[in-house]
Amino acid sequence: MPFDAPPDSRQVWLPTEFTSLIGLPGGLRYARWDGHSPFPSDPAAVEFYVPPLVQDLGVISRPLPRMTRLRAVQALSSGTDGLETWMRRMPGRVVLCNARGVHARSTAELALTLILASLRRIPEFTRDQDLGAWQPGTSASLYGRSVLVVGYGAVGSALDELLAPFGCAVTRVARTGRDSPRGPVHHVARLPRLVASADIVVLTTALTPETHHLFDAKLLSRARDGALLVNVARGAVVDTAALLTEVRDGRLTAALDVTDPEPLPAGHPLRETPGVLITPHVGAFTSAMWPRLEALVRRQLNRFASDEGLDNIVAY
């Protein structure tokens, strides 16, 4: 990694996890930052910022008020809802890019894992194992079930592919209706009718003002009895209090990789409610993640050094 560029070169900050990144363009000066150590160089000279991959927006945003020459931020996550607010506060024009598509397959893989684990009662059997109990029983099957995918972008499309061998009847919903290679994508306005006929509802949509508490008490009440809600999107897409009411009554079950609040505090009712499976926002975190992120950052930096337009722009 070329750290020996002239002192007056354009400055780039990279996460410390990028220890072996090769193929970066010359003419830029690179530094690495872990989000906790002292700043590796003067933030005021940084023009391209790749924040650490952490969930704490306070860590990511800490140097931003001092980055007066900043031109581009390349987030390592697909969701950038918090960072978009920061971009509006920055002086001048700052381009914000996300990691759209990089985490799609890993997140879809976890969504499928959560579905199968919930249907096949894996949490219950794991607890029995810890207790030394042996209690066989019949579980639900994924084969032939109706699955509603809410948010048909990269993750939703990847999940659709993974569901194909199970013979599921997949219904797709997005902000705009359209055709896809696997079938029609319905407009979100049809969601209240579609949710009523789904055995499994999987949330893969971005968090926006329109999707905040999209699954509120009214919409959750329309889900069919016994349905499974899987959320690998953002916690605030679901009204937590409304979801708690449904799962406590045993009418719905839930498998959540994201929660609201997050991290979920110890003793929170969601942790203690039967029929709820929770993972700590790990959908993207697999062995395949860093090579894919490195490829994205390498491509973006080469475009930046050549003054070409960047990919995956979500805000200015």
Rank of each mutant, 00 (worst) to 15 (best):
D239Y: 11
L270E: 07
T19P: 01
F48L: 09
G132K: 07
L296G: 14
G156F: 01
L116R: 11
L256D: 11
P269E: 01
T16V: 14
V238D: 06
A133C: 04
L264M: 06
E161A: 11
L252H: 15
L293Y: 08
R299W: 07
R248S: 04
L114T: 03
Y152E: 01
N312F: 14
T107N: 10
L114P: 01
A206D: 10
T19H: 13
V50M: 10
T208M: 02
M67W: 01
R292F: 03
L119P: 05
P280R: 07
D225M: 05
V237I: 14
A133Y: 07
L53F: 15
A288E: 09
L116T: 08
V230Q: 03
D307P: 00
A206S: 15
L112K: 00
S306D: 13
G167D: 13
H281A: 13
I313S: 14
L220T: 08
R93W: 09
G250P: 14
G27A: 14
R88H: 10
A288F: 00
R71F: 05
T171E: 04
R100F: 02
P63K: 10
G309D: 15
R32E: 09
A284H: 00
A254K: 07
T211F: 05
T253R: 15
T138D: 14
R224Y: 05
